[in-house]
Each structure stands twice: as C-alpha cells, then as structure tokens.
Simulated assay, not measured.
Amino acid sequence: MILDHGGTSPQIDPTASVAASAVVSGDVTLGPGVRILHGAVVSGEQGPVTIGEDSIVLENAVVKSRAGHACRIGDAVMVGPHAHVSGATIGSGSFVATGASVFPGARVGEGCEIRIGGVVQVNTMLEAGTMVPIHWVAVGHPALVLPPDRHDEIWRVQRELDFPGTVYGVERGTPTRQIMRDQSELHRPDSG
C-alpha cells in the first residue's frame, strides 16, 4: 500500500517494487531495484526516508524516520525480517539481520553486519566493516561492541547518548505518561 502523508507522496523508481501487504507512507524515496517485501513498513511520516539502489527490506521489517532524524539506507543493503531501523543511516553494502534494531541518530558505516538481534544504540557510530555479533550491543561514538551480559558497561556509555532526547525530544526523567501522551498526539491520523 502506497500512502500520502501530510501532503507528501512516496517517490518510487519504476524498477522498484512494493509488495501488496507492505506499507510505504509519506516522504519516502525508493531507488532503482529496491524491494519492499510483505508486511514491511517504510514510514516517512516524521521526516525523509531514502533507500538506495538494489536494497531490500524483508518481511515485517520497519524502516522509518524520527522527528529530527532522517533515515538513509545506502545501496545494496539488506534489512532482515522483523528488523527495525529508525532515524538512522546505514552505509552501502551493509546487512541488518533478522530482529536487529538500529536506533535514531545511529550511523552505520559501509559493509557492516548487524547480526540476528543485534542492537545499535542511539547516536552510536559504527566504523565501516564493523560486525555486531548475535544479540550484542553497539554503543557510543566510536562504538564499543559488547555482549548483553555486560549491561553495566553498556549503560555507562548509553546514558550519555541521550535516548529520551534523541527519540522523544524530552529530558531524562520526563514522566512516561507525558511521553506517551505526546507520542499519541503526534501519531493521530489528523496530525499530519
């Protein structure tokens, strides 16, 4: 399904394809040979999303911009099933495996691999060719790549990366109810 949002229509190269059960909405540009498979969502409702030549977004993946964070995916990138790329830049030739998450403000260099369930935290920068192992976490600038059982180390870096400010535009400590109320208002169908 191809949807306008806020008066902006997706721009889709004639050689790109979008599966019937996929959603492409808003300020989205799909380059030559791009494939958006069943159940995937590509949302440019909060800013631009650009997907480069011959890139593939597999089943049930989510690729979206965030307020203040465009999403840019280079050429020949695979975004695996159930992966999540939000307001991030993914360099050409990279692989974002099944269930991986790349958060707003993150920059993934060319030829990187984020393996199954891997996480690239907000405002993290991965150098070209970096590999994030299965279920590991990349955090910081430059990135430390750590196993999930080293939570205290991850948190020492992550807390300085300003997740609440980057993702929600609020200060740490803002009540969850207020954040969700603001997000609910932002995502109302008549808000765009």
Rank of each mutant, 00 (worst) to 15 (best):
V49R: 00
I51D: 01
I51T: 00
G52I: 08
D54K: 01
D54A: 08
D54I: 00
S55I: 03
I56Y: 02
V57D: 15
V57W: 14
L58R: 13
L58P: 00
N60L: 09
N60G: 03
N60T: 08
N60I: 01
A61G: 07
V62P: 13
V62M: 11
V62R: 04
V62D: 12
V63H: 10
K64V: 12
K64C: 15
S65P: 14
S65E: 06
R66H: 15
R66G: 15
G68M: 03
H69K: 09
A70Y: 01
R72M: 10
I73Y: 10
I73T: 13
I73N: 10
G74M: 10
D75Q: 15
A76Y: 02
V77R: 01
M78P: 00
M78H: 06
P81L: 10
A83L: 09
A83Q: 05
V85Y: 05
S86E: 11
G87D: 12
G87S: 11
G87Q: 10
A88Q: 09
A88W: 06
A88N: 09
T89M: 07
T89A: 10
T89P: 05
I90Y: 04
I90T: 07
I90S: 06
G91F: 10
G91D: 11
G91W: 06
G91K: 05
G91Y: 08
G93P: 01
V96L: 12
V96A: 11
V96K: 01
A97E: 09
A97M: 09
T98Q: 04
V102W: 04
V102R: 03
V102C: 12
F103E: 15
P104N: 07
A106L: 10
R107C: 15
G109H: 03
E110F: 00
G111T: 02
C112H: 01
E113A: 13
E113P: 00
R115F: 07
G117H: 04
G118E: 07
G118H: 04
V119N: 02
V120A: 03
V120K: 01
Q121L: 06
V122R: 03
N123F: 05
N123E: 07
M125L: 08
M125R: 11
L126F: 10
E127P: 00
E127R: 13
G129H: 02
G129L: 07
T130E: 11
M131I: 13
P133T: 09
P133L: 12
P133E: 14
I134F: 04
W136V: 03
A138F: 05
P142R: 13
L144C: 02
V145K: 06
L146G: 02
L146Q: 05
P147K: 02
P147Y: 08
P148T: 04
D149L: 09
H151W: 12
H151E: 13
H151I: 09
E153Q: 10
E153S: 05
I154K: 03
R156L: 15
R156M: 15
R156C: 15
R159V: 14
R159W: 12
R159E: 15
D162W: 12
F163V: 04
F163S: 03
F163A: 05
P164V: 08
T166V: 03
V167E: 13
V170Q: 11
V170H: 13
